[in-house]
Amino acid sequence: MNTLKRWLNTAKSHSRWAVISVPYLWMLLFFAVPFLIVLKISFAYQVVAIPPYTGLLELADQSVLMKLNLTNYLQLMVEDKYIDAYLNSIQIAGISTLLCLLIGYPMAYTIARLPPTSRNIALMLVILPSWISFLIRIYAWMGILQTNGLLNKLLLGIGIIDTPLRIMNTPLAAYIGIVYAYLPFMILPLYANLVKLDLRLLEAAYDLGARPWKAFLTITLPLSRRGIVAGCMLVMIPAVGEYVIPELLGGPSTRMIGRQLANEFFVAGNWPMASAVAIVMLLLLMVPILIFNHIQGKEMEGRLT
């Protein structure tokens, strides 16, 4: 009886570990290991061979030597094309995020104040476009923004401009594309936050004589801070690493880091450099993520005390 019980117990703990290990091993194998390979190759030298990089360990005179090549990282810090790409990515992602916030906040606010029955439909209308292929939605702008495209025809037709504007293949087109693609990601967390706002607070402010704008700035805006931060993160993080939008709309003059990585790998065939670009990109993204965690942690503390 005792042995049976013990046997059942071990079987139980085995099945427990079986459940844990399947997803665990999958993520180790297809996420952690690939990442370590990138880290390793980022310290290698580029060579003309298969694979086109050197190993880190060398066997010489009965000792194992480890050779870390830091020139990739040094190059990233001094060469203009990399610095430009990083700064451009941050600038384009940052300004696009701000534009998303400026357009998305009034939209989310208005939807949250609609009568409950029409709220769901209004929200559905925001989400619906993101079900259509991302690529197709970016492609839709190509016909509009071209030099002989519809936007220029419209502007020429009503006489605002005399010569067609060059928008396609400039950073401006990339801004439009990013705002368009990521706007729903800004609106959703803002809406979720604003819909929970206690309207009695505003009522009290009005009763005490506050003007609508003053009430908005002192009550609604500070209370929706969490939604703002969440929305900004959801837009900013993927926008920094964006590859498709600058490639299709931005043209050669829009140098962003995701494109630099792809060029380094596919055009220059420099695997170690592409890996180093990827590592630095991740380090760069850690900054906003840590800030976000910090703010969230503080809010939790504030609530507990």
């Binding site: 996420f31 690939p34 990442f35 990138v38 190759i41 690493g241 990585l261 695997w271 592409a274």
Partner: peptide
Amino acid sequence: VMPEVVTALSLLLM
């Protein structure tokens, strides 16, 4: 939170 290009590159290299 991983940028697509980084996930893509790491899987390709593996």
